[in-house]
Design a protein around this nucleic acid. Structure first.
Lengths: 201, 201
DNA sequence: GAATGTTTCCAGCGCTTGATGGAAACGCTT
DNA sequence: AAGCGTTTCCATCAAGCGCTGGAAACATTC
Protein backbone atom coordinates (compact mmCIF):
# COMPACT_ATOMS: atom_id res chain seq x y z
CA UNK A 1 0.00 0.00 0.00
CA UNK A 2 2.78 2.36 0.91
CA UNK A 3 4.23 1.72 -2.52
CA UNK A 4 0.90 2.15 -4.24
CA UNK A 5 0.49 5.56 -2.68
CA UNK A 6 3.98 6.52 -3.75
CA UNK A 7 3.29 5.46 -7.31
CA UNK A 8 0.07 7.42 -7.61
CA UNK A 9 1.37 10.41 -5.68
CA UNK A 10 4.12 10.62 -8.24
CA UNK A 11 1.61 10.98 -11.05
CA UNK A 12 -0.40 13.65 -9.26
CA UNK A 13 2.60 15.65 -8.09
CA UNK A 14 4.02 15.41 -11.57
CA UNK A 15 0.85 16.76 -13.09
CA UNK A 16 -0.03 19.53 -10.69
CA UNK A 17 3.19 20.33 -8.87
CA UNK A 18 3.60 20.46 -5.11
CA UNK A 19 1.31 23.40 -4.43
CA UNK A 20 -1.25 22.37 -7.00
CA UNK A 21 -1.59 18.94 -5.41
CA UNK A 22 -3.73 18.27 -2.35
CA UNK A 23 -3.48 15.26 -0.10
CA UNK A 24 -7.14 14.59 -0.84
CA UNK A 25 -6.40 14.38 -4.55
CA UNK A 26 -3.78 11.74 -3.95
CA UNK A 27 -6.01 9.72 -1.64
CA UNK A 28 -8.78 9.81 -4.22
CA UNK A 29 -6.44 8.67 -6.98
CA UNK A 30 -5.26 5.71 -4.91
CA UNK A 31 -8.83 5.03 -3.88
CA UNK A 32 -8.21 5.11 -0.17
CA UNK A 33 -9.23 7.17 2.81
CA UNK A 34 -7.14 10.19 3.58
CA UNK A 35 -6.36 8.78 7.00
CA UNK A 36 -4.63 5.81 5.42
CA UNK A 37 -2.41 8.17 3.51
CA UNK A 38 -1.31 9.94 6.66
CA UNK A 39 -0.94 6.64 8.46
CA UNK A 40 1.77 5.63 6.00
CA UNK A 41 3.46 8.84 4.99
CA UNK A 42 2.74 11.53 7.53
CA UNK A 43 3.33 15.03 6.23
CA UNK A 44 2.67 15.96 2.62
CA UNK A 45 6.20 17.32 2.32
CA UNK A 46 7.70 13.98 3.34
CA UNK A 47 5.70 12.15 0.72
CA UNK A 48 6.78 14.66 -1.87
CA UNK A 49 10.40 14.19 -0.97
CA UNK A 50 10.02 10.44 -1.19
CA UNK A 51 8.55 10.89 -4.66
CA UNK A 52 11.46 13.04 -5.76
CA UNK A 53 13.88 10.49 -4.41
CA UNK A 54 11.98 7.76 -6.19
CA UNK A 55 12.02 9.35 -9.63
CA UNK A 56 15.68 10.13 -9.26
CA UNK A 57 16.47 6.50 -8.57
CA UNK A 58 14.48 5.45 -11.62
CA UNK A 59 16.25 7.94 -13.81
CA UNK A 60 19.56 6.83 -12.45
CA UNK A 61 19.04 3.15 -13.10
CA UNK A 62 17.77 3.94 -16.58
CA UNK A 63 20.99 5.79 -17.29
CA UNK A 64 23.01 2.83 -16.10
CA UNK A 65 20.97 0.55 -18.33
CA UNK A 66 21.58 2.80 -21.31
CA UNK A 67 25.26 2.99 -20.59
CA UNK A 68 25.50 -0.80 -20.81
CA UNK A 69 23.67 -0.88 -24.12
CA UNK A 70 25.77 1.75 -25.86
CA UNK A 71 29.08 0.59 -24.45
CA UNK A 72 31.80 0.23 -27.06
CA UNK A 73 29.85 1.74 -29.95
CA UNK A 74 31.02 4.81 -31.92
CA UNK A 75 30.16 8.18 -30.39
CA UNK A 76 27.48 9.25 -32.87
CA UNK A 77 25.72 5.91 -32.44
CA UNK A 78 26.00 6.12 -28.67
CA UNK A 79 24.29 9.48 -28.72
CA UNK A 80 21.54 8.49 -31.12
CA UNK A 81 20.70 5.33 -29.22
CA UNK A 82 20.88 7.01 -25.83
CA UNK A 83 18.58 9.81 -26.93
CA UNK A 84 16.18 7.36 -28.47
CA UNK A 85 15.87 5.15 -25.42
CA UNK A 86 15.76 8.02 -22.96
CA UNK A 87 13.13 9.87 -24.96
CA UNK A 88 10.90 6.82 -25.19
CA UNK A 89 11.31 6.18 -21.50
CA UNK A 90 10.39 9.72 -20.50
CA UNK A 91 7.43 9.87 -22.84
CA UNK A 92 6.12 6.85 -20.96
CA UNK A 93 6.86 8.48 -17.62
CA UNK A 94 6.34 12.19 -18.14
CA UNK A 95 6.07 12.83 -14.40
CA UNK A 96 9.80 12.33 -14.23
CA UNK A 97 10.44 15.22 -16.56
CA UNK A 98 7.77 17.36 -14.94
CA UNK A 99 9.05 16.86 -11.44
CA UNK A 100 12.63 17.35 -12.50
CA UNK A 101 11.81 20.70 -14.04
CA UNK A 102 9.56 21.63 -11.14
CA UNK A 103 12.48 21.27 -8.81
CA UNK A 104 14.35 23.96 -10.67
CA UNK A 105 12.23 26.79 -9.37
CA UNK A 106 10.34 25.32 -6.46
CA UNK A 107 11.77 26.70 -3.26
CA UNK A 108 14.37 24.28 -2.00
CA UNK A 109 14.03 22.43 1.26
CA UNK A 110 16.75 20.32 2.84
CA UNK A 111 17.24 17.59 0.19
CA UNK A 112 20.64 16.44 1.28
CA UNK A 113 20.83 12.97 -0.25
CA UNK A 114 20.34 13.97 -3.84
CA UNK A 115 23.13 16.47 -4.07
CA UNK A 116 25.64 13.71 -3.54
CA UNK A 117 24.32 11.32 -6.14
CA UNK A 118 23.62 13.74 -8.96
CA UNK A 119 27.29 14.50 -9.72
CA UNK A 120 28.13 10.82 -9.65
CA UNK A 121 25.42 9.99 -12.15
CA UNK A 122 26.46 12.87 -14.37
CA UNK A 123 30.01 11.65 -14.23
CA UNK A 124 28.99 8.30 -15.62
CA UNK A 125 27.19 9.80 -18.58
CA UNK A 126 29.98 12.25 -19.28
CA UNK A 127 32.42 9.37 -19.33
CA UNK A 128 30.10 7.42 -21.55
CA UNK A 129 29.91 10.33 -23.96
CA UNK A 130 33.67 10.56 -24.14
CA UNK A 131 33.77 13.96 -22.53
CA UNK A 132 36.09 13.01 -19.72
CA UNK A 133 38.56 10.29 -18.90
CA UNK A 134 38.05 10.35 -15.18
CA UNK A 135 34.56 9.62 -13.90
CA UNK A 136 35.26 11.11 -10.51
CA UNK A 137 36.73 14.55 -11.09
CA UNK A 138 34.15 16.10 -13.37
CA UNK A 139 34.90 19.64 -14.56
CA UNK A 140 32.17 22.26 -14.48
CA UNK A 141 31.83 22.57 -18.23
CA UNK A 142 31.30 18.82 -18.62
CA UNK A 143 28.56 18.91 -16.00
CA UNK A 144 26.93 21.78 -17.84
CA UNK A 145 26.90 19.84 -21.06
CA UNK A 146 25.22 16.93 -19.34
CA UNK A 147 22.61 19.25 -17.91
CA UNK A 148 21.99 20.88 -21.27
CA UNK A 149 21.44 17.45 -22.74
CA UNK A 150 19.05 16.18 -20.11
CA UNK A 151 17.12 19.43 -19.97
CA UNK A 152 16.57 19.49 -23.70
CA UNK A 153 14.80 16.17 -23.43
CA UNK A 154 12.81 17.06 -20.32
CA UNK A 155 11.48 20.22 -21.93
CA UNK A 156 10.01 18.48 -24.90
CA UNK A 157 8.41 15.87 -22.68
CA UNK A 158 6.91 18.32 -20.20
CA UNK A 159 5.87 20.71 -22.93
CA UNK A 160 4.14 18.14 -25.07
CA UNK A 161 0.64 19.37 -24.41
CA UNK A 162 1.69 22.93 -25.05
CA UNK A 163 3.81 22.28 -28.12
CA UNK A 164 1.50 19.84 -29.81
CA UNK A 165 -1.17 22.46 -30.35
CA UNK A 166 1.49 24.95 -31.35
CA UNK A 167 2.83 22.63 -34.01
CA UNK A 168 -0.52 21.09 -34.80
CA UNK A 169 0.71 17.51 -34.73
CA UNK A 170 -0.49 14.35 -33.00
CA UNK A 171 1.41 12.37 -30.39
CA UNK A 172 3.09 10.04 -32.82
CA UNK A 173 4.40 12.84 -35.01
CA UNK A 174 5.44 14.78 -31.97
CA UNK A 175 7.60 11.94 -30.67
CA UNK A 176 9.23 11.70 -34.06
CA UNK A 177 10.10 15.38 -34.42
CA UNK A 178 11.34 15.49 -30.85
CA UNK A 179 13.84 12.78 -31.60
CA UNK A 180 14.87 14.44 -34.84
CA UNK A 181 15.32 17.79 -33.18
CA UNK A 182 17.29 16.39 -30.29
CA UNK A 183 19.54 14.63 -32.75
CA UNK A 184 19.90 17.77 -34.79
CA UNK A 185 20.90 19.92 -31.85
CA UNK A 186 22.94 17.57 -29.71
CA UNK A 187 24.84 15.26 -32.01
CA UNK A 188 26.86 17.86 -33.95
CA UNK A 189 27.95 19.56 -30.75
CA UNK A 190 29.36 16.45 -29.15
CA UNK A 191 30.82 14.78 -32.22
CA UNK A 192 32.47 17.97 -33.38
CA UNK A 193 33.96 18.58 -29.95
CA UNK A 194 35.47 15.10 -29.87
CA UNK A 195 36.84 15.46 -33.36
CA UNK A 196 38.60 18.69 -32.39
CA UNK A 197 39.94 16.99 -29.30
CA UNK A 198 41.25 14.04 -31.30
CA UNK A 199 43.05 16.15 -33.88
CA UNK A 200 44.78 18.15 -31.18
CA UNK A 201 46.26 15.08 -29.59
CA UNK B 1 -1.12 51.51 -10.02
CA UNK B 2 -2.58 48.91 -12.30
CA UNK B 3 0.84 48.70 -13.96
CA UNK B 4 2.65 48.55 -10.65
CA UNK B 5 0.55 45.59 -9.59
CA UNK B 6 1.24 43.86 -12.88
CA UNK B 7 4.96 44.39 -12.50
CA UNK B 8 5.13 43.00 -8.98
CA UNK B 9 2.66 40.22 -9.67
CA UNK B 10 4.98 39.09 -12.41
CA UNK B 11 7.84 38.70 -9.96
CA UNK B 12 5.76 36.77 -7.46
CA UNK B 13 4.09 34.51 -10.01
CA UNK B 14 7.47 33.92 -11.55
CA UNK B 15 8.95 32.89 -8.25
CA UNK B 16 6.18 30.75 -6.82
CA UNK B 17 4.04 29.77 -9.79
CA UNK B 18 0.30 30.18 -10.03
CA UNK B 19 -0.69 27.85 -7.22
CA UNK B 20 2.16 28.89 -4.97
CA UNK B 21 1.17 32.52 -5.22
CA UNK B 22 -1.61 34.07 -3.13
CA UNK B 23 -3.34 37.34 -3.88
CA UNK B 24 -2.29 38.53 -0.44
CA UNK B 25 1.37 37.94 -1.29
CA UNK B 26 1.05 40.15 -4.34
CA UNK B 27 -0.77 42.89 -2.44
CA UNK B 28 1.91 42.84 0.23
CA UNK B 29 4.69 43.05 -2.35
CA UNK B 30 3.06 46.06 -3.98
CA UNK B 31 2.36 47.51 -0.56
CA UNK B 32 -1.36 47.96 -1.05
CA UNK B 33 -4.56 46.67 0.42
CA UNK B 34 -5.94 43.51 -1.07
CA UNK B 35 -9.13 45.33 -2.00
CA UNK B 36 -7.17 47.63 -4.28
CA UNK B 37 -5.81 44.63 -6.09
CA UNK B 38 -9.26 43.24 -6.76
CA UNK B 39 -10.50 46.71 -7.69
CA UNK B 40 -8.07 46.78 -10.60
CA UNK B 41 -7.72 43.22 -11.70
CA UNK B 42 -10.62 41.17 -10.42
CA UNK B 43 -9.94 37.46 -10.40
CA UNK B 44 -6.51 36.03 -9.69
CA UNK B 45 -6.65 34.08 -12.92
CA UNK B 46 -7.21 37.24 -14.96
CA UNK B 47 -4.20 38.90 -13.41
CA UNK B 48 -2.12 35.82 -14.11
CA UNK B 49 -3.15 35.81 -17.71
CA UNK B 50 -2.29 39.49 -18.02
CA UNK B 51 1.14 38.69 -16.61
CA UNK B 52 1.69 35.90 -19.11
CA UNK B 53 0.62 38.19 -21.90
CA UNK B 54 2.96 40.86 -20.60
CA UNK B 55 6.06 38.71 -20.45
CA UNK B 56 5.34 37.38 -23.89
CA UNK B 57 5.24 40.90 -25.29
CA UNK B 58 8.54 41.71 -23.62
CA UNK B 59 10.16 38.61 -24.97
CA UNK B 60 8.81 39.34 -28.39
CA UNK B 61 10.11 42.90 -28.54
CA UNK B 62 13.47 41.72 -27.27
CA UNK B 63 13.65 39.25 -30.11
CA UNK B 64 12.85 41.98 -32.60
CA UNK B 65 15.56 44.14 -31.08
CA UNK B 66 18.09 41.32 -31.37
CA UNK B 67 17.12 40.64 -34.92
CA UNK B 68 17.96 44.23 -35.85
CA UNK B 69 21.33 44.04 -34.18
CA UNK B 70 22.49 40.83 -35.82
CA UNK B 71 21.08 41.63 -39.23
CA UNK B 72 23.54 41.06 -42.05
CA UNK B 73 26.24 39.40 -39.96
CA UNK B 74 27.60 35.88 -40.61
CA UNK B 75 25.58 33.05 -39.12
CA UNK B 76 28.01 32.03 -36.38
CA UNK B 77 28.25 35.63 -35.23
CA UNK B 78 24.49 36.06 -35.34
CA UNK B 79 24.07 33.07 -33.08
CA UNK B 80 26.76 34.08 -30.63
CA UNK B 81 25.48 37.63 -30.29
CA UNK B 82 21.86 36.58 -30.07
CA UNK B 83 22.60 34.05 -27.34
CA UNK B 84 24.70 36.58 -25.45
CA UNK B 85 22.08 39.30 -25.45
CA UNK B 86 19.19 36.98 -24.75
CA UNK B 87 21.01 35.28 -21.90
CA UNK B 88 21.89 38.58 -20.26
CA UNK B 89 18.34 39.78 -20.66
CA UNK B 90 16.81 36.70 -19.10
CA UNK B 91 19.28 36.65 -16.22
CA UNK B 92 18.01 40.13 -15.43
CA UNK B 93 14.40 39.02 -15.75
CA UNK B 94 14.31 35.41 -14.61
CA UNK B 95 10.54 35.54 -14.11
CA UNK B 96 10.23 35.39 -17.86
CA UNK B 97 11.99 32.05 -18.04
CA UNK B 98 10.22 30.75 -14.98
CA UNK B 99 6.78 31.62 -16.22
CA UNK B 100 7.51 30.34 -19.68
CA UNK B 101 8.51 26.96 -18.33
CA UNK B 102 5.65 26.95 -15.85
CA UNK B 103 3.23 27.23 -18.70
CA UNK B 104 4.48 23.96 -20.12
CA UNK B 105 2.86 21.81 -17.50
CA UNK B 106 0.34 24.09 -15.81
CA UNK B 107 -3.14 23.08 -16.86
CA UNK B 108 -4.14 25.21 -19.81
CA UNK B 109 -7.03 27.65 -19.71
CA UNK B 110 -8.38 29.51 -22.75
CA UNK B 111 -5.33 31.58 -23.78
CA UNK B 112 -6.38 32.31 -27.31
CA UNK B 113 -4.29 35.36 -28.14
CA UNK B 114 -0.89 33.81 -27.61
CA UNK B 115 -1.32 30.87 -29.89
CA UNK B 116 -1.52 33.22 -32.84
CA UNK B 117 1.52 35.29 -32.05
CA UNK B 118 3.93 32.59 -31.02
CA UNK B 119 4.33 31.10 -34.50
CA UNK B 120 4.82 34.53 -35.98
CA UNK B 121 7.60 35.37 -33.56
CA UNK B 122 9.23 32.02 -34.13
CA UNK B 123 9.06 32.60 -37.85
CA UNK B 124 11.09 35.76 -37.48
CA UNK B 125 13.84 34.09 -35.53
CA UNK B 126 13.95 31.12 -37.85
CA UNK B 127 14.32 33.48 -40.78
CA UNK B 128 16.99 35.37 -38.93
CA UNK B 129 18.89 32.16 -38.28
CA UNK B 130 18.79 31.26 -41.93
CA UNK B 131 16.63 28.22 -41.38
CA UNK B 132 13.88 29.26 -43.73
CA UNK B 133 13.40 31.63 -46.62
CA UNK B 134 9.75 32.32 -46.00
CA UNK B 135 8.82 33.85 -42.65
CA UNK B 136 5.20 32.88 -42.97
CA UNK B 137 5.14 29.21 -43.85
CA UNK B 138 7.26 27.73 -41.09
CA UNK B 139 7.74 23.96 -41.21
CA UNK B 140 7.40 21.91 -38.05
CA UNK B 141 11.05 20.99 -37.79
CA UNK B 142 12.11 24.65 -37.95
CA UNK B 143 9.68 25.49 -35.15
CA UNK B 144 11.11 22.67 -33.10
CA UNK B 145 14.61 23.98 -33.52
CA UNK B 146 13.51 27.38 -32.33
CA UNK B 147 11.87 25.84 -29.31
CA UNK B 148 14.94 23.77 -28.52
CA UNK B 149 17.01 26.93 -28.65
CA UNK B 150 14.79 29.03 -26.44
CA UNK B 151 14.21 26.25 -23.95
CA UNK B 152 17.90 25.61 -23.51
CA UNK B 153 18.31 29.16 -22.34
CA UNK B 154 15.23 29.22 -20.15
CA UNK B 155 16.36 26.10 -18.34
CA UNK B 156 19.66 27.49 -17.28
CA UNK B 157 18.01 30.70 -16.11
CA UNK B 158 15.27 29.02 -14.12
CA UNK B 159 17.59 26.41 -12.75
CA UNK B 160 20.26 28.81 -11.57
CA UNK B 161 19.60 28.34 -7.87
CA UNK B 162 19.56 24.60 -8.30
CA UNK B 163 22.55 24.31 -10.60
CA UNK B 164 24.78 26.76 -8.79
CA UNK B 165 25.01 24.57 -5.72
CA UNK B 166 25.41 21.52 -7.91
CA UNK B 167 28.35 23.07 -9.73
CA UNK B 168 29.59 24.99 -6.73
CA UNK B 169 30.07 28.28 -8.58
CA UNK B 170 28.98 31.85 -7.91
CA UNK B 171 26.64 33.90 -10.07
CA UNK B 172 29.33 35.44 -12.23
CA UNK B 173 30.93 32.12 -13.08
CA UNK B 174 27.55 30.60 -13.66
CA UNK B 175 26.61 33.20 -16.25
CA UNK B 176 29.88 32.55 -18.01
CA UNK B 177 29.56 28.79 -18.20
CA UNK B 178 25.95 29.09 -19.29
CA UNK B 179 26.99 31.15 -22.28
CA UNK B 180 29.83 28.78 -23.07
CA UNK B 181 27.61 25.77 -22.88
CA UNK B 182 24.86 27.30 -24.99
CA UNK B 183 27.45 28.19 -27.59
CA UNK B 184 28.88 24.70 -27.44
CA UNK B 185 25.56 22.98 -27.93
CA UNK B 186 23.72 25.28 -30.30
CA UNK B 187 26.27 26.79 -32.67
CA UNK B 188 27.64 23.57 -34.23
CA UNK B 189 24.13 22.32 -34.92
CA UNK B 190 22.98 25.37 -36.82
CA UNK B 191 26.21 26.20 -38.64
CA UNK B 192 26.71 22.62 -39.73
CA UNK B 193 23.15 22.37 -40.97
CA UNK B 194 23.54 25.49 -43.08
CA UNK B 195 26.83 24.28 -44.49
CA UNK B 196 25.24 21.03 -45.56
CA UNK B 197 22.37 22.95 -47.10
CA UNK B 198 24.77 25.24 -49.01
CA UNK B 199 26.86 22.40 -50.43
CA UNK B 200 23.78 20.60 -51.65
CA UNK B 201 22.66 23.58 -53.67
C1' DG C 1 -8.51 -16.37 20.54
C1' DA C 2 -5.48 -12.77 21.68
C1' DA C 3 -2.47 -9.55 19.68
C1' DT C 4 -0.96 -6.74 16.09
C1' DG C 5 -1.03 -4.03 12.05
C1' DT C 6 -3.88 -2.04 8.54
C1' DT C 7 -7.84 0.32 6.72
C1' DT C 8 -12.29 2.78 6.78
C1' DC C 9 -15.57 6.13 8.23
C1' DC C 10 -16.50 10.38 10.08
C1' DA C 11 -16.14 14.26 12.60
C1' DG C 12 -13.60 17.98 13.38
C1' DC C 13 -9.72 21.37 14.37
C1' DG C 14 -7.32 25.74 13.15
C1' DC C 15 -5.93 28.14 9.41
C1' DT C 16 -5.54 30.09 4.77
C1' DT C 17 -7.50 30.82 0.53
C1' DG C 18 -10.04 33.75 -3.14
C1' DA C 19 -13.28 37.08 -3.11
C1' DT C 20 -16.81 40.73 -1.58
C1' DG C 21 -19.03 44.48 1.06
C1' DG C 22 -19.48 49.01 2.94
C1' DA C 23 -17.82 53.22 5.03
C1' DA C 24 -14.56 56.60 5.06
C1' DA C 25 -10.77 59.30 3.34
C1' DC C 26 -7.71 60.97 -0.27
C1' DG C 27 -6.41 63.61 -4.53
C1' DC C 28 -7.86 65.63 -8.63
C1' DT C 29 -10.55 68.11 -11.93
C1' DT C 30 -14.38 70.89 -13.08
C1' DA D 1 -18.13 72.68 -3.31
C1' DA D 2 -19.39 68.99 -5.88
C1' DG D 3 -18.09 64.95 -8.40
C1' DC D 4 -15.16 61.23 -9.56
C1' DG D 5 -11.79 57.76 -9.44
C1' DT D 6 -8.82 55.70 -6.27
C1' DT D 7 -7.25 53.73 -1.98
C1' DT D 8 -7.56 52.11 2.82
C1' DC D 9 -9.44 49.71 6.68
C1' DC D 10 -11.99 46.19 8.42
C1' DA D 11 -15.13 42.77 8.65
C1' DT D 12 -16.77 38.84 6.58
C1' DC D 13 -17.94 34.80 3.72
C1' DA D 14 -17.78 29.95 2.01
C1' DA D 15 -14.65 26.75 0.69
C1' DG D 16 -10.76 24.33 0.93
C1' DC D 17 -6.45 23.24 3.03
C1' DG D 18 -3.21 20.02 6.02
C1' DC D 19 -3.78 17.20 9.56
C1' DT D 20 -5.66 14.57 13.82
C1' DG D 21 -8.68 11.69 16.69
C1' DG D 22 -11.48 7.90 17.94
C1' DA D 23 -14.23 3.85 17.04
C1' DA D 24 -14.96 0.01 14.50
C1' DA D 25 -13.95 -3.61 11.04
C1' DC D 26 -10.72 -6.55 8.76
C1' DA D 27 -6.64 -9.66 7.98
C1' DT D 28 -2.56 -11.94 9.55
C1' DT D 29 0.26 -14.00 12.72
C1' DC D 30 1.41 -16.33 16.88
Amino acid sequence: MKGRILRDARKIFGEYGFHGTTTRMIAQKVGIDISTLYYHWGEKGDLYEAVVQDIFEDLRSKLVEIEHIIHGKPLADRLTIALDIMTDYLFENPEISNLTLYRYFTKTRHESVLEVKVPETMGNIAYSMGLVNDKKALPVDAKMKMLAMMNSIHNFISGEGFFKVLLDVDHEDYVRVVKETLGFVLIPAFTQATKAQDSSE
